[in-house]
Amino acid sequence: MCATLVSPSQSPSDPGMPAAAPQTPLSPIVVRWRGNEAYQASFDAMREFTAARDAGTPDEIWLVEHPPVFTLGQAGKPEHLLVANSGIPLVQIDRGGQITYHGPGQVVAYLLLDLRRRKLMVRELVTLIEDAVIETLAAYNLAGERKAGAPGIYVPQDASGASAAHTGAKVAALGLKIRNGCSYHGVSLNVSMDLSPFLAINPCGYAGLETVDMATLGVAASWREVAATLAARLEANLAAHAATIRLVAEAAAADPSDGAAGANPAAGAAENEAAACAAAMQPAVSAVSGGEPPQPQAGVAPAA
């Protein structure tokens, strides 16, 4: 893996944004608008960035739209690609989960975070990401829910309006890789896209799982508009977690007898992996847990 940082020319900041200054441990995250980019280029750049970063490297969120591509996670089974000659390339990658599709009209947000520095457990990060998707979709008056054992956001069974015809469908999904306490990969949200390539796979290893986009659910919004909303919610949720950690640390400093308060909850997360297959995503208004996840094919475990 190359040990050079991604250069500004490869990942330009949003127009009008000043260049990132060296950051303190919990300073604001740098958001980079990479635009339409080949999947392999993003994948290589994420790994290079993560390999080269040190304790002072700013955390970043990359916003990307990919040309059509199928990606197969570490536990992925090739048989979940149902159409061998679809004309869409297949890339084997190092996130968790099974197979998914990325394409035009889908917002992909990659989270390059130092979890140790943020004292952030992997499961906490997954929850913060799902919350951000839920809040983003709520901004467009869409409802959704989590499903136990099946990471992502789904159209709820009691959905109304245009969503009622797509209950149980998936509109948002996530997949992460954790290396040396730092995350890469991230979350994808279907905005307005050609959904037919999802019919060529068992999304996330689930036969018959419907995927849907915001446009099908009745939302007319641009890729950039939704990307900006999602990035803002990711930043806000991560900032809120950081503020909570800071308050806990201050309380521990004021009362040294409470030794547990200052503990680092990210200890042991260095080589752990959070996997939530990055297939299609779905709308949500509140963080609803419950309901039965879609059943995978025999012998296929849901993404963790």
Rank of each mutant, 00 (worst) to 15 (best):
residue 4 T to W: 12
residue 6 V to E: 13
residue 17 M to G: 01
residue 22 P to L: 10
residue 23 Q to M: 09
residue 24 T to L: 11
residue 27 S to T: 01
residue 32 R to I: 12
residue 38 A to R: 02
residue 42 S to L: 00
residue 43 F to Y: 15
residue 45 A to H: 08
residue 46 M to D: 10
residue 48 E to P: 03
residue 53 R to A: 10
residue 58 P to G: 07
residue 58 P to R: 08
residue 59 D to F: 10
residue 60 E to Q: 12
residue 61 I to K: 01
residue 62 W to E: 06
residue 76 G to E: 06
residue 79 E to H: 07
residue 81 L to T: 12
residue 84 A to I: 14
residue 84 A to F: 12
residue 90 L to I: 14
residue 92 Q to N: 10
residue 93 I to Y: 05
residue 97 G to R: 05
residue 105 G to L: 10
residue 106 Q to C: 06
residue 108 V to I: 15
residue 111 L to G: 00
residue 113 L to S: 10
residue 113 L to Y: 03
residue 114 D to H: 13
residue 119 K to W: 11
residue 121 M to W: 13
residue 123 R to Y: 03
residue 124 E to Y: 01
residue 130 E to W: 11
residue 130 E to A: 08
residue 130 E to M: 08
residue 136 T to L: 07
residue 142 L to E: 02
residue 144 G to N: 01
residue 152 G to H: 11
residue 155 V to K: 09
residue 156 P to L: 00
residue 176 L to T: 06
residue 183 S to V: 01
residue 186 G to W: 05
residue 190 N to W: 00
residue 196 S to D: 12
residue 208 G to M: 07
residue 215 A to F: 14
residue 215 A to P: 06
residue 220 A to V: 12
residue 227 A to Q: 04
residue 235 E to C: 13
residue 236 A to W: 02
residue 238 L to V: 10
residue 239 A to L: 02
residue 242 A to V: 10
residue 244 T to V: 10
residue 245 I to Y: 00
residue 248 V to S: 14
residue 251 A to K: 06
residue 254 A to W: 00
residue 255 D to I: 03
residue 259 G to K: 05
residue 262 G to V: 00
residue 266 A to W: 02
residue 272 N to I: 04
residue 276 A to Q: 06
residue 276 A to R: 11
residue 277 C to Q: 08
residue 278 A to M: 14
residue 280 A to E: 02
residue 280 A to Y: 07
residue 284 A to C: 11
residue 285 V to I: 03
residue 286 S to N: 07
residue 288 V to L: 08
residue 291 G to W: 14
residue 299 G to L: 05
residue 301 A to Q: 08
residue 302 P to Y: 00
